[in-house]
């Protein structure tokens, strides 16, 4: 039965009121109006409690389903900080940044930025980079299937033209640099009982994340090789990419001999990260 004093909302107003009350930490001021629209057979006193409980089912469903989805996307972060801390962070994140797409496979990219600002995790400086790794791992896991190219086909290219070649990377290829051993942290936390990693004795990584067949690969590249692949991924020719790699190595006073180019390319071919080559006119 309709209450005589309540203005009946149109669909837009109803959905806005629901939305406000589903994501908020506490019930929004509109919650009383909303709950007065619920059918009840109880007295006024009891029906107010009943309304809160009925609304709470939806509030819990929304927050629980989204924060558990985030937990499925960031299992290593969850393991590192513990369930309670993760759930608190996830709920806060969900409220700040609900998904923009119904397919949750791609949800939570900015969780890596959020987690370093989350009070309880502020001293865990490596968490953000581990979160980036987990996000990219998941993207690679679901990325499109494309065959890598057979390097033998390069034999059709005249030697003097090789430097002008560009390559297409497998769509899963992501390059992630970190001052923390995020690959070791990730691998260790796939185990039931992870061993401790002493972060004082470790060096940074230049990670290549991509999928080979159905399996996601984490490869810690030599820094020069990482830079070379970075340039090739952007569509530079071999000559341009190598020049940039040499320049960056010189600036950083890193050892790099010109003979190393063919070895690096051969190594990248063996990883099967390229799907095609192109010779621009």
């Amino acid at each position: 039965m309709k209450s005589p004093n309540i203005q009946i909302p149109n669909i837009k107003e109803f959905q806005l009121m629901m939305d406000e009350n589903l994501l908020s930490t506490d019930l929004a001021p509109s919650s009383n109006d909303l709950m007065s629209l619920f059918e009840t057979k109880l007295s006024d006193d009891e029906s107010s409690d009943e309304g809160k409980l009925r609304l709470a089912i939806y509030r819990n469903n929304v927050i629980h389903s989204l924060s558990s989805a985030l937990g499925d996307l960031y299992p290593v972060i969850k393991k590192l900080v513990g369930d309670d801390c993760f759930n608190a962070a996830a709920i806060e994140f969900v409220r700040l940044e609900p998904p923009q797409h119904a397919a949750l496979l791609h949800y939570g990219k900015s969780f890596s930025e959020f987690i370093i600002e989350f009070e309880a995790c502020k001293n865990l400086h490596f968490l953000s980079d581990v979160a980036i790794l987990e996000f990219e791992y998941n993207q690679a896991y679901h990325s499109a299937d494309v065959q890598s190219f057979d390097p033998q086909t390069l034999s059709t290219i005249a030697p003097e033209q090789l430097g002008d070649l560009t390559f297409s990377c497998h769509p899963s290829v992501k390059l992630v640099q970190s001052m923390w051993p995020i690959d070791d942290i990730w691998h260790e936390n796939q185990k039931e009982q992870p061993d401790l990693i002493n972060l004082d004795d470790t060096t940074g990584v230049h990670l290549l994340i991509y999928r080979l067949g159905l399996v996601v690969q984490l490869v810690n590249l030599d820094e020069n090789c990482f830079i070379l692949l970075q340039q090739l991924k952007q569509g530079m020719t071999i000559n341009q990419a190598w020049a940039e790699t040499v320049e960056q190595a010189t600036l950083a006073q890193r050892q790099l001999e010109s003979e190393e180019l063919s070895g690096m390319l051969g190594y990248l071919f063996s990883l099967e990260v390229f799907t095609a080559f192109n010779l621009s006119a």
Binding site: I11, Q15, L16, L22, L23, Y58, V62, Q100
Partner: peptide, 14 residues
């Protein structure tokens, strides 16, 4: 869905 965000639940209608 409300505006651009998704609530990931099957919410009731009048």
């Amino acid at each position: 869905k409300q505006g651009k965000h998704h609530l990931n639940d099957l919410l009731p209608m009048p």
